[in-house]
Design a protein around this nucleic acid. Structure first.
Ligand SMILES: [Zn+2]
Ligand SMILES: [Zn+2]
Ligand SMILES: [Zn+2]
Ligand SMILES: [Zn+2]
Lengths: 136, 136
DNA sequence: TATAAGAATGATACTCATTCTCAATATATT
DNA sequence: AATATATTGAGAATGAGTATCATTCTTATA
């Protein structure tokens, strides 16, 4: 993903701080929390403040560049908004997150909602347990 | 549910405070948050402190009497742990919560996890949107 | 270029749900 | 009763996230 292009398209001014924050998040394969991201960013530029990290995350979220997740471990996590929706398997030991997409589940969700006359806007499905490594 | 019996079975001493807190929560059909529950309890016995509400909730959760939920509205919510697992439809306007259980979805979840060699311990599925009333 | 207006930043104060601390009470045991 | 143990309530502490505000860029205009 070309950060400059995306920011320009959305009409967000791209400061050096925002560039570094965005680059660090989008180049990571993990679902980073704000503090974690701040730590990584801080190593590269110790002048950047935590507030700027939070602000940049909010702007990127408002503009549909990233998504906010809550895996119930006390802090929100952020990730690149991929083209395809996906859900998560979360390892309770090592914290590793595996992504998946199961269209049949998605369809069944819609049917359940219809039955209850409920209009679904969004959803989240998270399976907690142990990954292959950790369950040995 | 007989509160006295349940507490005795689990070996939890049942003080007057705990009885009131447990009764209030279990007699409610809603998914109450701690503050909300504290408010209800406080009306009946203003001497009970918020810390005791939190402590009692924790004890009941540790003993499998209730379950903690996080619907992403800033506070945890608690509900009677029913015999059957269930998931939730949550209205983003009125906050109403509808429960459902769809065994086919549950089965598919297991299959997805197997494919990823992941051992599922628990999961949560929440559909956010608008209930029948609010979507008009 | 100079300058004024506007946006972004960083330090810090603040909020708010939840947990911790500790002295005071209540309960159980000898 | 006397002692040990458990529970309580008030308030302090915690920690993620937000708001404030003076300072530092940018941009636009004279
Ligand atoms: Zn693992
Ligand atoms: Zn993801
Ligand atoms: Zn509604
Ligand atoms: Zn429920």
């Amino acid at each position: 993903m070309n950060i400059e292009k995306v920011f320009v398209e959305k009409g967000i001014s791209l400061t050096s701080q925002r560039r570094l924050i965005a680059e660090t998040l989008l180049n990571s394969s993990k679902h980073l929390g704000a503090e974690e991201l701040f730590y990584l960013v801080h190593k590269k530029n110790p002048r950047i403040g935590l507030a700027t990290v939070y602000r940049t995350l909010q702007i990127m979220r408002e503009n549909g560049i990233i998504e906010k997740r809550d895996f119930g471990d006390g802090c929100s996590r952020y990730e690149d908004r991929k083209d395809m929706h996906h859900d998560h398997l979360i390892c309770m030991k090592c914290g590793n997150v595996i992504e998946f997409d199961e269209p049949t589940i998605e369809n069944l969700q819609m049917k359940v909602a219809e039955k209850k006359r409920f209009k679904v806007v969004t959803h989240r499905l998270e399976l907690f347990g142990y990954c292959n490594k950790c369950s040995k």
